[in-house]
């Protein structure tokens, strides 16, 4: 996995979409891989919540014949938390404040999710942990 490329994607998304405050990438089972989060956020707990939230949403979509799950978004009075599946193996969390344009976020994340999926499933040998 190219750690630098993953960090670049995460930072790029935050700079591209106005209102993103934090991002994190985790394995589908909730094990944290990378977190670009403020000190007030517990990234390990967030990754676990996202894995559970996506699992519940996926089962809901299946039980109600809503087709393939696209994403889950939790809206609060101070912003939102969006969980996306990254391929079949991982997930991404995006937190935003009240100003975040969620439709714009969904459009901007699609190419990023595809690239992050390729980075994560890259069979190249692991490099030393580094960031951007």
């Amino acid at each position: 996995m190219d750690h630098k490329a993953l960090a670049l994607e995460m930072r790029g998304l935050r700079e591209q979409v106005t209102g993103i405050t934090d991002t994190a990438v985790a394995a589908a089972d909730g094990l944290l891989i990378a977190a670009d989060t403020a000190d007030s956020i517990d990234p390990e707990g967030l990754a676990a919540l996202a894995a559970a939230g996506l699992g519940l949403a996926r089962r809901t979509a299946e039980a109600t014949a809503r087709g393939t799950l696209r994403r889950t978004v939790t809206y609060g009075s101070h912003g939102c938390a969006a969980f996306y599946a990254v391929g079949d193996t991982a997930l991404m969390v995006v937190l935003g404040d009240e100003g975040l344009d969620v439709d714009h976020l969904h459009r901007a994340t699609q190419p990023a999710l595809r690239r992050i999926d390729s980075i994560l499933t890259d069979k190249a040998p692991e490099k030393a942990s580094e960031g951007v």
């Binding site: 993953l6 960090a7 089972d29 094990l31 990378a34 960031g131 951007v132």
Partner: peptide, 22 residues
Amino acid sequence: PPAPIPVRALPEGHRLQQRTPP
């Protein structure tokens, strides 16, 4: 510049696996 984003290597023996199908 901004602080680097820490990226963790997955623990030994942990590989990214496909979600367990229901």
